[in-house]
Write a protein that binds this DNA or RNA. Structure first.
Lengths: 156, 156
DNA sequence: GCGAACCTACTCGGATATGGGATGTCCGAGTTCTCGTGG
DNA sequence: CCACGAGAACTCGGACATCCCATATCCGAGTAGGTTCGC
């Protein structure tokens, strides 16, 4: 899986802690984790295209969460960065080669069916969890994180 | 996801229909779907390493199912070909950069937790389905497939 | 003193290189079957 | 006719190229704010 997903979720959490009032630039978000700024910018652009964050150009600009953390599921972030195509794409090899005569193309590929169901379970599990859930879990074990994070991003 | 997974599952189904008595060469399995023989061979080697199929060299040799179809889950095949490492691997970026001070490494990364749970749901769904299930579903909609397949692989 | 125009710095956004892993190809070791030969 | 041995063909198994996408980098378009000039 694309590693940008990890960056995206963590950055969304940081944006949630900073608050939607002030925007944070991609360079600063990247700096927080020591990541390459340009590539981080690309991930944030994907989030912006998906409507998860707003982007404002110019000085003082940057990215802000477009919705409340409770209204953003982890699935949203993953779909925005990783793409919405299924990981397993059925190439319908049963319709190729000499064995093609044995199959009626109308009825679905049973292998694909199983893979789809599994991926559906995966998506459902990711859609069940929101950024607010993760945020709450982190704050439960480390209550000082919100203040520290906000302070760091407010700093120089 | 590796496309060899699709080849592996379909080939295992074919081996199930042919029966464990007679071995089928990788070249012939590849020919059935019009796939490159060498690369198909590689996938079957992975299945052999995982103990899903037996391999016998020499003329008349080839691959046979090592267990009954009901004892082979789709997860087994996927793990054999795709590997057992999780798709999402947490790089622990929260421990890197200036923000590292804010986190206690002992408590787990909540983002990773969510990802792990989702992937676990995916694995569980794949482990629930066996080759026998797929085989039965195909035969239910196309009862002639077993005979046709066996006949084709018995042919010249 | 005040307003407006300009200029600079900063930001996003997309176009452009690069590297590693999946994809595809090839050849060697080993086994089994077949054919020929001798008894 | 039968047993035996040599050869050939077939198979897996792994080593070797190739291609594509994720990764990484860079530069241009546009905007906000500060600064300076004119009135």
């Amino acid at each position: 899986m694309n590693e940008g997903v990890e960056w995206g979720v963590h950055s969304c959490l940081n944006l949630a802690w900073v608050g939607a009032e002030s925007a944070v630039s991609s360079a600063r978000l990247a700096e927080y984790y020591g990541l390459p700024p340009g590539y981080m910018n690309k991930q944030l652009q994907a989030l912006a295209r998906a409507g998860i964050v707003y982007s404002t150009p110019g000085p003082g600009g940057g990215f802000r969460l477009a919705r409340a953390p409770a209204e953003i599921t982890v699935m949203d972030v993953v779909a925005a960065i990783e793409g919405r195509e299924p990981a397993f794409r059925c190439a319908e090899i049963r319709q190729r080669g000499p064995g093609a005569d044995d199959v009626a193309p109308v009825d679905p590929c049973q292998v694909d069916q199983v893979m789809r169901r599994a991926e559906l379970a995966w998506r459902a599990e990711l859609a069940r969890r929101t950024l607010a859930d993760i945020k709450a879990a982190v704050e439960a074990s480390s209550p000082e994180v919100p203040v520290r994070t906000r302070r760091w991003f407010a700093g120089p």
